[in-house]
Design a binder for these strands. Sequence first.
DNA 1: CTTTCTGTTAGAAA
DNA 2: ATTTCTAACAGAAA
Length: 287
Amino acid sequence: MPELPEVETIKNDLKKKIVNKKIARIEILFKGGIRNNTKQFEADLMGDKFLDIDRIGKLMIFKINLPDRYLLIHLKMTGQLVYCQKNFIIAGGHSLPKLAGSLPNKFSRVIFYFTDRSALFFNDMRKFGYLEIVDGKKLARIKKNYGPDPLGKDVDPDFLTSILKNRKAPVKAVLLNQKLISGIGNIYADEILFQSGIMPDRIAKNISKKETEKMDKAIKSVLRKAIKFRGTTFNDYVDSEGNQGNFSKLLKVYGKKGEACPGCPGGVIEKKRIAGRGTHFCRKCQK
DNA sequence: CTTTCTGTTAGAAA
DNA sequence: ATTTCTAACAGAAA
């Protein structure tokens, strides 16, 4: 599931690969993922190029070389953006059953062909992801619905205190709330709370100052490390070359139900529904 | 075979 | 205002 580290990895890779390449053709295999009128969508992009790629939370923003036009791409749960040179054989190849060794595959929804005969594939098994071209005004409106980036300078223990205080939702719900802080999803929320030693179902306003400071450190160290390792592949995530993320091996609790806790002797990782999501924790390490 | 689970976000309901 | 629930979808697992 692409969260901040995965989207950051894809964005940085694509910046090197597709910026300033002229779009020769767009193939739309599934219209549902495109929020604009598809004819208008094609017309806006045909013959144009992306000047830069940005990110807010898990949302990617491609600046188009047209005045006041931005392409937003959200991968939601199973979206992929895979870039291929001429022959459309991907590096990760057969490593994932859902991503065959060649593209397009049955989950390819939109394909951007560039004039140098390379292509960018938007694949999305579950069809939750979307593409939308917006103007600056709409982009600004969307940006207002996102809290600060956890790795930016706006997030520190004082900021975390401000979003935790007065809230009776579980602390995990606060971490997942994109309006309060952007980019954290289910996998990293569990990992962050494990490293913080905080039970995910603790009421947000009851988190102490000391715990808030631990959370601040955990947020940054977990996300930075995950970016360094190019993200986590649990089911469907691949980077822009079709390769899996390497952080999967470093997960401490997510997906580890029933396994020995890596943080204490005798502890076992449990799984329980918290804030509407499958949540992994060790009750010996997390209080 | 059927049911449950997966996790993101918008929007509805509480 | 805040929190919880559900739908959207496709496939794996039980």
